[in-house]
Amino acid sequence: MLKILKYSFYDLMRSRWSYVYFLFYLALGFVLLFLNNDVSKAVITLMNVIIVLVPLIGTIFGVMYYYDSKEFTELLLAQPLKRSSIFLGQYLGVACSLTLSLVLGLGIPFLLYGLFKSDVIFDFSLLLVTGAFLTLIFTAIAFNIAISNENKIKGFGYAVLAWLFLAVIYDGLFLMSLIIFEEYPLDSFSLAATMLNPIDLSRTLILLKLDISALLGYTGAVFKQFFGTNQGLIIAILMLILWTVLPVWRLVYKSKKKDF
């Protein structure tokens, strides 16, 4: 598997898009820091960008890479290699190179700015960790959609729809249900609904760490009670891991049954 990972990774590192993605984060980091002059505010703005953009890029890159490397996959399938290692290697190659672009692109400007001297280092690391998780999760979802759809256009469409649903529509439905059922106690419902969407989960996790939960009102207090504790943090991270493992497991399962 490591060999496939190596080749996929090198292949992506040579492609222009990895650099575009890296340079984008680099520019974003520099602009935010030097225009804002405030690391905590920069972290919040970054969070808003990351929470939407990272899943989108992960989805699109994942689908594109899968369809693009079809020939490579077919070549590998005739070699003495395990099917699961071929697909896991390719998946990790994409996810790792995207994560690397994110971490380096944001890390460099923050390091230059003097991150270690400021006290937001923990918030910033949490931002990078959730960014990495979101990349892993959405690349895995994209690979899942691509492996189940022979037709490129269909696969691409479903992948973008999946992103749109989790990033935008889910929140709308969530808010609507809160309004409709406002007469009922909704604490545990909103906690569960947040847990079930990796984007919402990441957002809540970062917001609460940034200590601006007062903005969120009563629900914020409930959330703070839950996520603010170490136990809540551990459960949230576990949920993110589960969100990563499930699609990866399905990818391996599907790859074993597919005809090429």
Partner: peptide
């Protein structure tokens, strides 16, 4: 079934030569 090591002993020439194009 579910084996892969045996392919070490097989040479295969596929029908349509599809290769990763940027290599």
């Amino acid at each position: 079934k579910n084996k892969w090591k045996y392919r070490q002993e097989i040479k295969y020439l596929p029908q349509i030569a599809n290769f990763p194009s940027n290599l």
